[in-house]
Amino acid sequence: MPLVDELLRPSDVTLDSLVDHVRQYLVPVTSASDPARVITARPRIPEGVSELAQARRARLRGRLTDLWLVLWAVRRPVDDSLGELLDAASSSRAYQDLLDDVAQYDADSRARLFADVRAHIQTLSEVLGTRPARVEVQLGVRRRLALGISGTELRVRFDLVVTLPERRGLVDVTTSPLDPDDAPLALLALADLLAGYHPRRVAQISSATGEVRMREVDGALVDLALSTLHERTRAA
């Protein structure tokens, strides 16, 4: 079954009681304020790949893959030269840094970067397939939620949110190999629940390996998210 259909498959889990349970972690809001500490859901970098993931080229690869998702969402194919990706970037203020960085690359480095990106796009394209026309897609959806743990804010970004009436799936795309830990997925689900939505499933895709990890949003996942939050708050 294609990934998007799998994400939006009906689920037996009733989320109402979970939603009531997790909302006790939110502070009553009285005014906007700066958080004392920020917890993000992005997966920790697995051992051995930290150098690669932190490199400038890895960041650019991530941003270009992100751009490809934009074209995927509007069902436009990308030509081989990847010129369309840079064309797309040039129309958006959010990608100005990407254009500046790519402009600093010499022809060889640029060719290597694009070859690398093409491989990631190919993998991602195989995992995602063509976007089903009936499914609504939102890109780059962010959540910033003040929690009831002394000035802590949970910040997450969903690369893709796919929806059908009464069904909602969250997707995180990473250009690194997948971490075996479910905590990032749990935090993504928690953030969406806290913002008042009812996600059914949450998935993470690695465009490096084509691996997919998908979890149904249920009590166990929410418990994992809450324990991760406490653990990270203590560690911060």
Binding site: V70, L71, A73, R76, L85, A88, S90, S91, L139
Partner: peptide, 15 residues
């Protein structure tokens, strides 16, 4: 705008 730029605008408006 070229096709890529229009696709970006399209995606942003729809979102």
């Amino acid at each position: 705008l070229g096709p890529g730029g229009r696709a970006m605008v399209h995606a942003r408006i729809l979102t």
